[in-house]
Design a protein around this nucleic acid. Structure first.
Lengths: 198, 198
DNA sequence: GTATGTATACTCACCAGTGAATATACACAA
DNA sequence: TTGTGTATATTCACTGGTGAGTATACATAC
């Protein structure tokens, strides 16, 4: 059946997403992706010019939904800035307890491609993290925080650290530890910590 | 020439270390490791029973030296606890600027093997991080910090976060940002922050 | 009747692991 | 001191399997 066109491409990307994310890009063959999408490899190569191209599409497809989720968790949380950021880590901890969770697709791809610094997939990952950092920075700036970029980067470090550590230890409680640290850094930056000790 | 025995095994592990670290365990073939070590694949398989076994040996060989380096940087740094921990991040930033630097071998391997949670290589990586965390915790406990484990985990998160982020962005300045965050968390835990704002 | 898709069936390269044979060093015996 | 056995160490040549990418042909829609 010809003529599905865009739906077909979409189906391939979804199959790639599912397989690449859960098993890694090197371990999964193009044939497997094609089979999962319900078509042959040759058809897949009609829609994508190479496996690298497919990998890039896989990551590009994760960009927006991931960011949207973070923004949603932030927006829906009760409380001030520290609590709203903390909510991101709490929600992430919940996700991380699902057995199919395998860390951050962008970071894992960058780890697999560490010997190819200019690879398109890495640029997509870097852009993704940059967008998250930018959003945090803008949010902190709105709240009048003195060095919003620095704080945004610190939160990003805690976030990506918890992806890595939780993946290694399979212990989602590290996400909550990261959230607490984030809270504390934000509170400090907001100058709310003078009242802590006596 | 028989009779080198241990030196030979050592040479293989060093070749594996160099190749696996710089290109990833999946991308490097056993033949390549053997060639780099100056012998044939069959000889390599005399010393190691499988590629997985070789990967495990590669990581096991990185465990002690890595930890020793962190302890050395800590010990040699001037100043109090925050400054000594910060020194680890500063030194790491210096390492990370070398072009051959490719992040943390343990984390990258765990990212490549994310679909095999029980893999020996992952257990070695997890044990390595645990050792680092334990050392930090003990150090903080000696200084009378209230919740030394929590603080140790927060530092670990910043450390591993900076590995991941610097690898992705190829921007070592994130290491220094992580160091600042670590400093701040330690100072807060030491109760030295009350004097900051009027 | 030409664009767009899709499938069958291939090529060529690579790769983990093995079979069978060989070379060396050392122990002990003659 | 010279021979001989045995564990150690190494090689060459191979197998079975997989993987990325392609040549060619066929089908459908407009």
């Amino acid at each position: 059946m010809p003529r599905p066109s865009e739906p077909t491409r979409e189906r391939i990307v979804q199959a790639a997403n599912s397989l690449f994310y859960s098993e890694g890009i090197r371990r999964v063959s193009v044939d497997e992706v094609a089979a999962k999408a319900g078509l042959t490899k040759r058809t897949l190569y009609y829609h994508f010019k190479s496996k690298d191209d497919l990998v890039a599409a896989y990551l590009a497809a994760r960009d927006q939904p991931n960011l949207a989720l973070f923004r949603k968790w932030f927006a829906e949380a009760e409380g001030g800035l520290p609590a709203k950021v903390d909510a991101i880590f709490k929600n992430l901890a919940r996700s991380a307890r699902h057995p199919k969770w395998k860390g951050c697709g962008f970071l894992r791809t960058s780890a697999e491609l560490a010997n190819m610094p200019g690879h398109p997939a890495i640029r997509i990952g870097a852009a993704h993290k940059k967008k998250f950092e930018d959003w945090l920075r803008a949010t902190f700036a709105e709240q009048g925080i003195a060095d919003p970029l620095k704080l945004a980067r610190q939160i990003l470090l805690l976030l990506d650290g918890s992806f890595a550590v939780v993946l290694l230890h399979r212990d989602a409680s590290y996400m909550e530890t990261a959230g607490e640290a984030a809270r504390m850094l934000i509170e400090t930056a907001m100058g709310k910590l003078g009242r802590r000790r006596s």
